[in-house]
């Protein structure tokens, strides 16, 4: 593991191992977000109303439901990687950083699960008005 200097510790942990994986996932989900969130913003803009019946009707379409599920995966994955870098750069206290990273993972996975379940419930079962 080197001589204990900074460079000695990171030597060999570069892209030849899995150091590049976050970088690649960040770009992959960035490209996914570019397509899916733009579609989402344009769709919301094009909807005549945003009341309960209109939104339910809109989400009952397979293309919309699948688009929203894919967007949720891409967005929450992207924000998990992005906020992780943010926390690692700015939270210097070890205990606080571990707690923040844990909270971030709970938020990304829990929030993504809530969103996807809600989309599927509306698309598959509908909601009684």
């Amino acid at each position: 593991m080197g001589t204990g200097t900074g460079i000695g510790r990171v030597r060999g942990l570069g892209s030849a191992r899995h150091g590049g994986l976050h970088w690649w996932h960040q770009r992959l989900t960035a490209a996914g977000n570019l397509i899916l969130v733009l579609w989402f913003v344009i769709s919301l803009f094009r909807l005549p109303l945003h009341d309960f019946p209109t939104i339910l009707q809109w989400m009952s379409s397979p293309f919309v439901a699948v688009g929203l599920v894919l967007m949720t995966v891409s967005v929450f994955w992207h924000l998990k990687i992005g906020l992780q870098v943010f926390i690692e750069d700015y939270v210097h206290d070890d205990a606080l950083r571990v707690a923040a990273l844990m909270a971030l993972n709970f938020y990304a996975v829990g929030g993504g699960a809530l969103a996807i379940f809600s989309i599927l419930k509306i698309a598959l079962l509908g909601v009684k008005g």
């Binding site: 339910l56 929203l68 992005g82 969103a115 379940f117 989309i119």
Partner: peptide, 22 residues
């Protein structure tokens, strides 16, 4: 990015959960 992740993320979840709840 942080504003989108937290502000946008939480509001997106609220919107969907509200729609799925009734």
């Amino acid at each position: 990015g942080t504003a989108n992740a937290i502000g946008g993320g939480v509001l997106f979840i609220w919107w969907l959960v509200a729609a799925a709840s009734g």
